[in-house]
Amino acid sequence: MLPIAGILDVLDNYAFVRTSGYLPGTSDVYVSLGQVKKYGLRRGDAVVGAIRQPRESDAGNRQKYNAIVKIDSVNGRTLEENEKRPDVADLTPIYPDTRLRLEGTPDAQLGRAIDLVAPIGLGQRGLIVLPNHTAGTALLGELAEAVRANAPEAHLMLVLADAQPEDVTHLERTIRGEVVAATFDRPAEDQATIAELAIERAKRMVELGHDVVVLLDSLNSFARAYAQAQHTPTRPAHDEIDEFALGQLKKLLAAARKVENGGSLTILATAHHGTGIAADKTLLREARRVANSEIRIAKTRAGVAPVVDLAKSRTLNAGTMLSAEESSVLDLVRTALHDDDAPKRVFERIRATTSNAALLAEIQRSGGLA
Rank of each mutant, 00 (worst) to 15 (best):
P86M: 13
H133F: 09
G111K: 07
D339M: 09
K70T: 10
D211G: 09
D211K: 07
H133K: 12
A287L: 15
L310A: 08
D12A: 13
T78M: 01
K37S: 05
E178D: 14
L252F: 14
R365G: 02
A336T: 06
I267W: 02
D341T: 12
I175W: 01
T232L: 14
M321K: 00
A271T: 15
R204G: 11
V88G: 03
L369Q: 09
A198Y: 10
R349I: 07
L79K: 12
H210G: 03
A291D: 12
A182Q: 12
V333R: 08
Y22A: 06
F222Q: 11
V31Q: 01
P3C: 08
R18N: 04
S57A: 15
K344I: 13
R148T: 10
V29L: 01
L122H: 10
T78K: 03
R52Y: 11
K344C: 00
T174E: 13
L330V: 07
I241M: 06
K38W: 06
L156S: 02
V290N: 09
R257Q: 14
A135I: 00
S57Y: 04
M1R: 15
S264H: 00
I120T: 14
R257K: 06
I363D: 02
V307Y: 02
V329D: 08
A298S: 15
S313N: 09
N82T: 10
E196Q: 15
N82R: 06
G263W: 02
L330C: 02
T300D: 08
R43H: 07
P119N: 11
V304R: 05
R176M: 08
K281A: 15
Y65Q: 05
L110N: 10
I297C: 09
L139T: 12
L360D: 05
V47Q: 07
D115G: 08
A358Q: 14
A254S: 15
I51R: 12
A149V: 02
P152F: 03
A324N: 09
N82H: 14
S327P: 00
R43N: 15
A135S: 13
E81K: 04
L139S: 01
V212F: 13
N82W: 07
E80P: 06
V88M: 04
A50S: 13
P306F: 09
M1L: 04
F184R: 14
A311R: 14
I71W: 08
I94F: 00
P54D: 05
A298M: 06
T282S: 13
V179D: 00
L337M: 02
E240S: 12
A305G: 01
A192C: 05
L268C: 08
A192Y: 07
